[in-house]
Computed example of a mutant assay.
Amino acid sequence: MSTASFTRRHRKRKLKSEINVVPYIDVMLVLLIIFMVTAPLLNLGVDIDLPKSNAKSIAQKQEPIVVVVDAAGGYTLKMQDIPQQKVDAAGLAAKVSAFVKNNPDVAVFVAGDRTASYDTVYQAMVLLQTAGVEKVGLMSNSAD
């Protein structure tokens, strides 16, 4: 009888060829919670001090179009052979669009006042993009 009970027990205990993934799932869930908690903390703002530019000016064949954004958010347009003139957003887009259609290779620069808000300068760049200008440069003073 002892051999019969031994074979019966041996038949019940077969080796498993499967991997137990429950501990891996637990570890994955803990890591997911840790990353979900720490991810918002990684997007904190950082104070930066932008460097001054020692870049040399670009030689142009034509005089560039310069859009000046003043501290109050107004626009001033300076184009070739035309004196500086204050314009509103619609006038800026219309005049630059007409000029760029005739002179597609003309350079366009935005000169933003230091105290002007970033949004105002950005909106000027958006207006120029809608006017058909593909590349817009930003002007700065020299470091000297």
Rank of each mutant, 00 (worst) to 15 (best):
residue 16 K to G: 14
residue 43 N to E: 10
residue 85 Q to G: 07
residue 100 V to H: 11
residue 66 V to S: 01
residue 55 A to Y: 07
residue 100 V to S: 04
residue 126 V to R: 13
residue 116 A to C: 04
residue 75 Y to I: 02
residue 106 V to G: 01
residue 3 T to M: 05
residue 39 A to K: 11
residue 78 K to A: 07
residue 76 T to K: 05
residue 41 L to Y: 14
residue 94 A to W: 01
residue 16 K to N: 14
residue 67 V to H: 01
residue 53 S to P: 11
residue 48 I to G: 05
residue 143 A to K: 15
residue 35 F to P: 04
residue 103 N to T: 01
residue 99 F to G: 00
residue 36 M to V: 05
residue 16 K to P: 13
residue 70 D to W: 01
residue 141 N to F: 07
residue 4 A to F: 10
residue 58 I to G: 02
residue 35 F to Q: 11
residue 27 V to G: 04
residue 104 P to K: 06
residue 57 S to E: 15
residue 1 M to L: 09
residue 91 G to V: 09
residue 15 L to V: 12
residue 21 V to N: 14
residue 17 S to P: 06
residue 22 V to Y: 04
residue 20 N to R: 15
residue 103 N to V: 02
residue 4 A to M: 11
residue 81 D to A: 13
residue 73 G to F: 01
residue 96 V to M: 00
residue 54 N to F: 12
residue 76 T to D: 01
residue 98 A to M: 08
residue 129 Q to L: 10
residue 47 D to M: 08
residue 124 A to C: 00
residue 72 A to R: 14
residue 135 K to C: 02
residue 34 I to D: 06
residue 63 E to K: 04
residue 49 D to M: 03
residue 22 V to F: 10
residue 132 G to S: 05
residue 84 Q to F: 10
residue 119 D to V: 04
residue 82 I to P: 02
residue 135 K to G: 02
residue 135 K to Y: 05
residue 69 V to R: 00
residue 133 V to E: 00
